[in-house]
Amino acid sequence: MYSSLAAAIKDAEAQKKSLGVLALETESRDQARPVAEIRDALNRALAVMRRAVNDGMTGDLHSASGLVGGDAAKLRHGPPGPLSGTPFRDVLARALAVQEVNAAMGVIVAAPTAGGAGILPAVLTGLATARGIPDEQVITALATAGLIGAVVAERASLSGAEGGCQAETGAAAGMAAGAATEMLGGSPAQVGHAVALAQQATLGLICDPLGGLVELPCVFRNATGSAIALAAIEMALAGITFAIPADEVIDVMGEIGREMDVRYRETAGGGLAATPTGRRLARERMVQIKRSPG
């Protein structure tokens, strides 16, 4: 797979292909597997994503600690806000739904990780539903997202323990922004700008989960990460460009991750996890987890 988005964009433009098609062909060559087989695997991933979105909307899921759950249903059925009835509110609900399923040990697709697993399904299935986009195109968009994620894995990191939340929900926002921009008709160059616009907004984001659990703030970071992706998509499709290329924004993310103090890398030693309330809640809930039969 590619380790530079600029190189992939150049090849896609030269071959007059979308980045998604280029990603499928490259994967097919790298792994010596037919494209149809890779599309099948992505189709199965899409089915799991959709099931998680649906299961998460019921509102009766609870995480091991009980810190999160039921909020996706509030966006779906709760009092209206200024964005009710728009894809924006629907995408937020979907992101919360997938993460609530994840926190309750349900089945999700780690894309790129479990902690950031809500953003890509929320943005892609939410916008595909709003615009009536067929599954074939959503599957190609998943390949686009995979290519973007592979570039981030090669140049920076996809692990909160290594690079903070910018490497998990940040990377997921970049993947979702680029993939959806292409799915909605954007050119490879516009995909690059969408990735840069999303990723720049999450630079420096720390990983500070209460008690080290993938719950708080992770669930909400998936919703706000989706909001960032939507903003990037809207801007990129309007023709807005970001002067710093995506590869360089990703490099900076990696550099910040390497410099980030260990307290801010999934250890629950800093950030929200180390606030007085964060510490108290983590203490109380860990006792509850140990008592629960599983």
Partner: peptide, 16 residues
């Protein structure tokens, strides 16, 4: 890096 490593695995949560 494989594309299916990035879009996957399909897994029981909460942490990859």
């Amino acid at each position: 890096v494989s594309l299916l490593d990035i879009i996957g695995p399909v897994m029981v949560g909460p942490s990859s």
